[in-house]
Design a protein around this nucleic acid. Structure first.
Lengths: 305, 305
DNA sequence: CACCTTTTGAAAGGTATTTTCGGCCTGGTG
DNA sequence: CACCAGGCCGAAAATACCTTTCAAAAGGTG
């Protein structure tokens, strides 16, 4: 590997391919798929970006009581080509949070919190969740997914429970711009539907855990039948990724007793769904725009004057 | 490291520690003491920190038409032990100034926005929406609604289209903590249900416009049958308020062509729903907590290992 | 308890950075 | 104009750092 040699064009290209500030979020998202020693490393870099950026691989390995290999592996999991790049990102992150605003850590919602506080904390948590998701979303994957949807002959959306509602949201939106979409709530029906899919069709699976059998199964079937498959999940390493052409990662904020992870995942998922929708609407603007206003007008008489 | 010691004019102090920010200034100050090729390097890094940080010594040497040695020498002049450290500082600087120009009041999402921007704008808009809603939510009304729900014998949730999905979200949550709840999607069914309600029951209506006939109607029926009625709407003055004992106001952010108000209202509505749920869960903690973990465990086997 | 899978660190193998070293250009001088 | 410092510069060697490999250790499983 020659690293970034001739590959860099002489022109100005300031944008950063690796996400800048999403590190803490990514650590949280990916921690479950890490081994113990990797988690130690991830914790160290998330906890002290500045300090870690000052260390070499060997130094960081020593500080975390692991080996160089583990440090590199962790960097890979976090989405960087190697430690060198993680280190750069750490330096950037440190500067950013030194210069910028406080990360604003919210306390968990407690049983005896007054309602006013509950409202504030919930709003804050969900906002954080949105920021994390936006920061961690892989634009290239999104682009690919949007492209597939925009030209899809037919779209199936698989999700169970709360995720099914998100799926229905997507379906409602897609229908409004003229796409053919379904979000079967019944797992058997989902598989039955999936069998019908072929190349040119798109299947979207939504599952926070990435391990929900009832959602993996229809996606697998769709995948094997040649449909383009998209997974919206909080565990991009999960089993579901095996059957997904494009993986869109949602971030899960910390969970508390009263607010399980499943609850906050919905916010992330909806953001991703909205992005998909807007993307598709942009690409099919000629037909989407009139379809949107048509559907608006068609509903007008259902409202009181 | 003897290097060009005697050659450095005694004027400006070489500044021993590695300061992060004032790089451009330093380049200007130290430029006189630099040779021509060094100046080219210094200019390049000062002019495009981000781009330079992405390059290796060799890459930067090529871009500036010099050699690796010169790049390293320049780094030394600028006060760093070597290029490696200059590179880290550059990454930090780039992040810093990127964060600086971040705020940028969100413009509307345009048809030709690149996806990365769409993601950022959507996240920002929804976060704004959350903040607005949290700020505008009447805690007393919320408290009252929570109280009614916590002791309800039965809960009906009315909503159509996207709002119905929000209603289903609420229903799913309430079911998880042992409440009896329904969210009929069919307006006729909704009215049929509403007729059954009596004092001690709760009806929740969700409509952004506050004028959706299909939602007003069942709420009116419920109201007239003595049920406690709650309205979640963006128009607290709307017709629906007439039949609501408690009105919870959602905020609607500005709408754009591609993003109708209905879309952003969902975020607000979900926040309100979450607040209701948490409130109820707090007040029924004794039964809610075990019910929550039961439902979690019951689903465990539906996940792959 | 044997077997297999996963995880881990030591050491080998590469790359990127730093240092060395000699050529070359510049400008001054006889 | 020829010659000679004196320092600038880059090719290549030397080193530091990062990455990969691989076998041992740890952890599960039948």
């Amino acid at each position: 590997m020659k690293e970034t040699f001739g590959a860099v064009p002489p022109g100005p290209q300031p944008s950063a391919p690796p996400p800048p500030g999403a590190l803490a979020a990514k650590v949280r998202t990916l921690a479950p798929s890490m081994t113990r020693s990797m988690q130690r490393v991830a914790e160290a870099v998330a906890g002290d970006p500045a300090g870690s950026a000052a260390l070499t691989v060997t130094g960081l390995a020593e500080r975390t009581g692991t080996s160089e290999a583990t440090v590199v592996r962790t960097a890979r999991i976090l989405g960087y080509p190697g430690y060198r790049d993680l280190r750069l990102a750490l330096a950037a992150l440190a500067a950013e949070q030194a210069a910028g605003r406080a990360p604003a850590v919210t306390a968990d919602i407690a049983v005896d919190d007054p309602l006013a506080e509950v409202v504030a904390k919930l709003a804050q948590e969900e906002a954080q969740c949105l920021a994390d998701t936006a920061a961690g979303l892989d634009t290239a994957q999104l682009e690919a997914a949007v492209g597939a949807l925009a030209t899809a002959r037919r779209v199936d959306v698989y999700g169970i429970g709360a995720s099914n509602l998100v799926g229905q949201d997507l379906v409602q939106k897609l229908l409004r711009i003229g796409l053919l979409a379904h979000a079967p709530a019944d797992p058997h029906l989902a598989v039955t539907n999936a069998v019908q899919l072929r190349a040119g069709d798109v299947a979207v699976a939504i599952t926070h855990s990435g391990r929900t059998t009832d959602v993996i199964e229809p996606l697998r079937v769709a995948f094997e039948h040649g449909a383009t498959t998209v997974a919206i999940t909080g565990r991009p390493q999960g089993e579901i990724a095996q059957y997904a052409d494009h993986v869109l990662t949602t971030s899960s904020a910390r969970e508390s007793e009263l607010r399980p992870a499943a609850m906050s995942s919905r916010t992330s998922q909806l953001l991703v769904v909205d992005c998909l929708f807007i993307g598709v609407a942009q690409r099919t603007y000629e037909t989407a725009a009139p379809a949107l206003s048509d559907s608006y007008e068609a509903l007008a008489h259902r409202h009181a004057p």
